[in-house]
Amino acid sequence: LTDEAGTPDPYRHALQDGGRPTVLTRAYSGRTARGLRTSLTGGVHSPLPFPWQNALTRSLRAAGAQAGQPDLLSLWAGEGYRQARTGSAAQIMADLTP
């Protein structure tokens, strides 16, 4: 969530909201990754292997980003995503350094 990250607004808002659990999914890329639960992570039951699933969902993800619909984005996040901080990378690093 650093100022420099260039995170799309719908992704940034979903991370800051903190209301979604994380899940392991292959729905977006065909490879297992941890991300925030979306309608797609629960709706794709037999994803294609990578790279075909990634190619299949590319235009969907792009349209979701354009329309500001986070449920169509691959919202990659670890289990501790609620601890993410906003601000400049330099400031966050300074805050973390004893």
Rank of each mutant, 00 (worst) to 15 (best):
1 L>F: 09
1 L>I: 07
2 T>R: 11
3 D>T: 14
4 E>M: 04
5 A>Y: 03
5 A>L: 11
7 T>M: 15
8 P>K: 07
9 D>E: 15
10 P>S: 11
14 A>Q: 11
15 L>C: 13
17 D>Y: 06
18 G>C: 08
18 G>W: 10
18 G>H: 09
18 G>Q: 08
19 G>L: 00
20 R>S: 10
20 R>W: 02
22 T>M: 13
22 T>Y: 06
22 T>K: 10
23 V>F: 04
24 L>I: 13
26 R>S: 10
26 R>M: 11
28 Y>I: 06
28 Y>C: 09
29 S>Q: 04
29 S>A: 13
30 G>Q: 00
31 R>V: 10
34 R>G: 02
37 R>V: 11
38 T>E: 04
40 L>F: 03
41 T>D: 01
41 T>L: 07
43 G>C: 02
44 V>Q: 02
45 H>F: 01
46 S>W: 01
48 L>I: 01
49 P>F: 02
50 F>M: 05
51 P>E: 04
51 P>T: 05
51 P>M: 04
52 W>E: 12
53 Q>D: 05
55 A>N: 03
59 S>R: 13
59 S>Q: 05
61 R>P: 05
62 A>P: 02
63 A>N: 02
63 A>L: 14
64 G>A: 12
65 A>V: 06
65 A>T: 12
67 A>L: 15
68 G>N: 04
68 G>I: 09
69 Q>A: 13
69 Q>C: 01
71 D>I: 05
73 L>M: 14
75 L>I: 08
75 L>H: 08
76 W>F: 14
76 W>Y: 14
78 G>E: 08
81 Y>N: 03
82 R>F: 09
83 Q>W: 01
85 R>G: 00
85 R>V: 09
85 R>L: 15
85 R>W: 04
87 G>V: 00
87 G>R: 09
89 A>H: 00
90 A>D: 13
90 A>V: 13
90 A>R: 11
90 A>C: 00
91 Q>R: 08
92 I>V: 13
93 M>R: 12
93 M>G: 08
95 D>I: 02
96 L>G: 15
96 L>I: 00
96 L>F: 07
98 P>S: 07
98 P>W: 00
